[in-house]
Nucleic acid binder design. Structure first.
Length: 272
DNA sequence: AGCGGAACCTGTCGGC
DNA sequence: TGCCGACAGGTTCCGC
């Protein structure tokens, strides 16, 4: 479900609600496979701790708690965080309730149960955070960075941009949109992309992500913000999920192909 | 080492 | 209506 702009939206909205609040207790309605490790330990480590910060790294949400502990969450495809007043019963896909001292509940809800919740004493203990590449909105994302890392890569550019070890935060929707605006064919071999083309990729990546964040992300089917509102960026999508619709640049039909078992949408005329 | 494909889990939609 | 396959915004694991 969520890529960088959606996670960023959730992090900002959650922060405003929960920083300063304290977890009184944790109720787990379905742990497998969401909550990693021992459940009792998870509940005990979280209970009584206060949220002092919420931030994002790649598509992970990092909750900083006091006394020192970190909750690292990933929404994967259908995970959601919801702030609610107390409910009589968990609803169907509520997986974990973090009951708060303010008499509200921070709910982790996830239809498909791909999401993950992990607690660490130190962030450096997290294996998944270690493997991540550069943040796309940081100054380090440059055409030179890509060129240097990928000059001999034989992989297709779509696959490279989805791979979180090079640049983080991009997913299936934004990669199609970025390559469309950069006029790069999704099956181009990364090693053969020149400096000028990398520069178009970098510029459009940053432009699209910034615009998407301004619009609180993209709601295609079920992404929801903390307050259950939808994002607005879907109205700016030019190719994603638009098979056979006319390309906004040239009018020829948008193509759909499958790469790495995932749909890619592009214009065969405009993207070379 | 690095790649592609299967797996994780649940729901929806379209075709027959 | 019922069944079946394809597909869904992600990541990890397992062979080759």
């Amino acid at each position: 479900m969520p890529e960088l702009p959606e996670v960023e939206t959730v992090v900002r909205e959650l922060g405003e609600e929960i920083i300063g609040d304290t977890i009184s207790s944790v109720e787990i309605f379905r742990s497998n496979p969401i909550v990693q490790g021992d459940l009792d330990a998870f509940q005990q480590q979280m209970s009584g701790r206060k949220f002092i910060d919420v931030r994002r790294r790649a598509k992970y949400l990092i909750f900083h708690l006091e006394p020192e502990k970190y909750l690292v969450a990933h929404l994967r495809m259908t995970g959601k965080f919801i702030i609610s007043n107390p409910l009589p019963e968990p609803t169907k896909y509520n997986r974990v309730w973090f009951n708060l001292k303010s008499n509200r509940v921070l709910i982790f809800d996830d239809i498909r149960c791909f999401g993950t919740l992990e607690v660490y004493a130190k962030l450096s203990d997290s294996k998944s955070l270690k493997k991540l590449g550069i943040e796309p909105l940081s100054a380090g994302l440059t055409p030179e960075y890509f060129k240097k890392l990928l000059h001999s890569s034989k992989r297709e550019i779509k696959s490279i941009l989805l791979d979180q070890k090079f640049v983080v935060g991009l997913g299936n929707i934004y990669v199609s949109e970025i390559l469309f605006r950069a006029k790069i064919h999704p099956q181009r071999i990364a090693g053969k992309i020149n400096k000028k083309e990398w520069s178009r990729i970098v510029n459009n990546t940053q432009y699209i992500l910034q615009e998407a964040i301004k619009n609180n992300g993209t709601t295609i089917s079920d992404f929801r913000r903390v307050d259950d509102k939808t994002g607005k960026f879907q109205q700016f999508l030019q190719v994603y999920d638009k098979k056979e619709e006319p390309c906004p640049e040239c009018g020829l039909p948008i193509q759909r192909i499958v790469q790495q078992q995932r749909s890619t949408y592009f214009c065969a005329e405009c993207q070379r």
